[in-house]
Nucleic acid binder design. Structure first.
Lengths: 341, 341
DNA sequence: CTGAAAGCGCTTACAG
DNA sequence: CTGAAAGCGCTTACAG
């Protein structure tokens, strides 16, 4: 049988309370006593039953998720996944609060983070904006000992505990590689549509994409980045304009959201002149466009995985448990028409 | 506060034991009593604390994993992941036994399955072989009420509860689509290397690959399938011979394992004549080959995800809990040199 | 058919 | 600095 606290207490000749103190590193135990207990723990190969501990503690985990109120399918889908997780999580002593803030607004994010000081949550997850004031707020929360996970977009220099999202540099490189191969090496002009250069994930994708084109496909020239703010209406206008003004565009890399607008713009050009298109995030819109050939490949991050991973990591941090790195690595999905899930 | 069994007992005016009987559908409760309790459960919105229940039951889950003793990196890696999970799982009241059997041997699999009747495990996971006698054994275990999960290769007509693996038809189609696009539509000859047509996953990949080539890339002709039994030595011999005898091979789809041999064979042909290569499973060998350009794309299933998913599903089945379908769907990873994890 | 009591492995006041 | 006892939410003999 697995040893329990009773076995340790008996073996060390102390009471349960003392075993508990040692186990949890609480003060008020004489050095010799502590060593006796630690000896028994090591000898018996004790490993704590976290479920029983949490039951006894009556502990419930209060987590806060701060999400931008973006009107695009990816963020809406992420919200759905999160609400699904909230329903299930209440059965596991978790209480998740969702805070919505205006998108691409560092001030709003800082305010939301600051507001968390009062509630003293067991952990915070948020979509980062890479700005000095955000980093400062994160440092303060970290100093207060609150575990933090960045979601979708990271903030690497700051003291977050974990990032639940894809490697965006690699995503950009992958897009570049596919674009280069699909265009078969012939000289061509490629347009890039982003949401905002303010968020790190978009910047990194662009960087990876440009690097691969330069290194491996020098025949491909890129136009200046179009910033669509992940807004379908704006994206449609920008892409429509670009396709009109630069008729020789043979490829488009849409590295942000708002692809509803991209697809609209593409549908209004003849299928003969349709460029090779690589976009991000599998949504109802991009899925349809992939099926009917309007889009050629979609790079995706699984919002459900990200949400569940963020919750698992926050819980592990709150419990002082290690995380399984491989399990929490968010993969870059590549979808063609043929491997749609 | 969340309602507990005490609240239900009080509200229904019965004892804890009776509440427990109703909660667990045990017999020996009068109809009216049962209804009173069910009323209270519904009214209070009770949801059971599974952790506490398991603690009280002193329940430990005995699971058996039956794996083929294949000498290829994928299966070895899967074994590693499983052993890692075994270590962690003991902390969660799980006891996982690993049974190794000879590969591609339906009789051995049947014998291993039959042997499980005695131990009455809480669940079994196994790499299926699609043969009538295997299906029959599975039906018998299902009739005995033992939850079963197929791993990596499925057995769809049988009564398994879940399949922890990729959609192999889609994987084959994806390989076909990439091959067609990478070869840029020019007429060419493509070789296909499989492990064995006896396992369903290999058959399905071939089917998907061939279908896409026929539908979308009629210029690509495939040679008769080479069956390498996932054995590096055999694969190397077969591929070497094919490359010698059919010098105009411009693409190779390796849909099974044993890619160590494939890579050896490829390295001994000049880089000028090197064909476009798409293989399955990211291992130390294929990773290296992808990096140095010997292989162009790798389709992968994450063995760690599969193992953890199989365990989660078996546990859920044993607890009578639902599974989160989206969480348990195993994705087809596509790796290029640029998005290696 | 129903209930009182003990126990699963841990933690928490409280007393000394 | 240390321990005895009660309790977290559930289940399990056992008695009636």
């Amino acid at each position: 049988m697995k040893p329990t606290v009773h076995d340790i207490a008996r073996s060390a000749g102390v009471s349960l309370a003392t075993v508990d103190r040692v186990l949890n590193g609480r003060p008020g135990v004489r050095r010799v006593t502590r060593q006796k207990v630690e000896g028994a723990i090591a000898e018996l190969g004790y490993v704590r039953d976290v479920a029983a501990a949490n039951l006894a503690k009556g502990r419930t985990y209060a987590f806060t998720f701060i999400l931008p109120a973006n009107d695009n399918s990816f963020m809406l889908g992420l919200g759905d996944e999160l609400r699904g997780a909230v329903v299930r999580s209440s059965a596991e002593r978790m209480q998740i609060r969702i805070v919505n803030i205006p998108p691409f607004d560092p001030g709003a994010l800082v305010a939301a983070l600051e507001a968390e000081f009062d509630g003293r949550p067991a952990g915070i997850a948020f979509v980062a904006i890479d700005a000095p004031e955000v980093r400062a707020a994160v440092e303060r929360l970290a100093a207060a000992g609150i575990p933090m996970v960045t979601l979708v977009s990271d903030l690497p220099e700051a003291a977050r505990d974990h990032y639940a999202g894809i490697d965006n540099m690699a995503a950009g490189r992958t897009a570049g590689s596919l674009m280069g191969r699909f265009l078969a090496g012939a000289p061509a002009t490629v347009a890039v549509v982003a949401g905002s250069m303010l968020v790190r994930d978009h910047r990194e994708r662009l960087e990876g994409f440009s690097a691969v084109l330069q290194e491996q496909f020098p025949g491909l020239a890129t136009l200046p980045v179009l910033e669509g703010r992940d807004d379908p209406v704006l994206v449609e206008a920008l892409v429509g304009k670009a396709l009109n003004e630069t008729p020789d565009i043979r490829g488009i890399y849409s590295l942000g959201a708002g692809n509803r607008g991209l697809i609209q713009a593409l549908r209004s050009v003849g299928s003969l002149r349709r460029p090779m298109v690589i976009a991000h995030e599998l949504t109802a819109f991009t899925r349809q466009a992939l099926s009917d050939g309007t889009i050629d490949a979609v790079l995706n991050q699984d919002a459900g995985h990200e949400v569940r991973s963020a919750i698992r990591v926050l819980k592990a941090k709150a419990d002082g448990l290690p995380v399984i790195a491989a399990q929490e690595r968010i993969r870059i999905d590549i979808f063609l028409k043929d491997n749609l899930p």
